[in-house]
Amino acid sequence: MATIRLPLSGNVTQAIWSAFLSPFNNQVGLINISVGRSSAPEVEEQVLTEVASYGRQLGRIGDALTVLVRHFHPTEPLTKDEEKALTALRAMLDEIADVKEQHQRKGLRA
Rank of each mutant, 00 (worst) to 15 (best):
A2E: 05
T3V: 15
T3W: 15
L6T: 08
P7I: 10
L8W: 09
A15E: 10
A15D: 05
S18T: 09
F20D: 14
L21G: 02
S22P: 00
P23E: 10
P23F: 09
N26Q: 15
Q27G: 01
Q27N: 07
G29T: 00
G29P: 00
L30G: 05
L30Y: 10
S34I: 10
V35W: 10
V35S: 09
R37K: 08
R37S: 12
S38K: 00
A40S: 08
A40D: 09
P41C: 05
P41M: 07
P41D: 06
E42G: 00
E42C: 06
V43W: 10
E44Y: 02
E45N: 05
E45V: 04
Q46T: 13
T49A: 07
T49C: 02
E50Q: 11
V51D: 04
A52C: 02
A52E: 01
S53G: 03
S53E: 02
Y54D: 04
G55N: 04
Q57M: 15
L58E: 08
G59E: 15
R60M: 14
R60A: 03
R60G: 07
R60L: 15
I61S: 01
I61R: 01
I61Q: 01
I61W: 04
D63I: 10
D63H: 07
A64N: 00
A64I: 01
L65Y: 12
V67H: 02
H71W: 12
H71R: 04
H71S: 09
F72G: 00
P74N: 06
E76S: 14
P77R: 00
T79V: 01
K80L: 13
K80N: 05
D81S: 13
E83N: 05
A85G: 00
L86S: 03
T87A: 13
R90L: 01
